[in-house]
Amino acid sequence: MSAVTIEGPTRMNLLGLILANLIERNLADPELKRRFDGLEGAVAVTAGRMGVTLRFARGSLSVARGAQEEGARARVSGSLDTLMGLALGSGMVGPYLSGRLKARGIFFLLKLKPLLRADPAR
């Protein structure tokens, strides 16, 4: 059984599908899997007008449509371009300082970020 589940996959938006796919692929890397296994808590992600909530539970993740900020340990929002840029390797600081990226719960996000990299080996 996959460690990543999508709640209501037929109705999941593109953002949720992209993030779930990235994380699932990265679990093949033992170091990233260890990092994943240590995560607990929810992250609300908004890209443009799309939102998803990632709920980590020490070794499993469920992805739900809609960014539920209440009770979330971290929040991140920006344009889809900006968020894809993070996945493709750009740093968080530049977009954050320029206002293109809004984030709260920065320490949790820093733990999560390697799991969202499109090609972590680079």
Binding site: T10, R11, N13, L14, M50, G51, R65
Partner: peptide, 10 residues
Amino acid sequence: KPGARDPGEP
């Protein structure tokens, strides 16, 4: 079989 579109997505 995709269901309804999220109004916020492309």
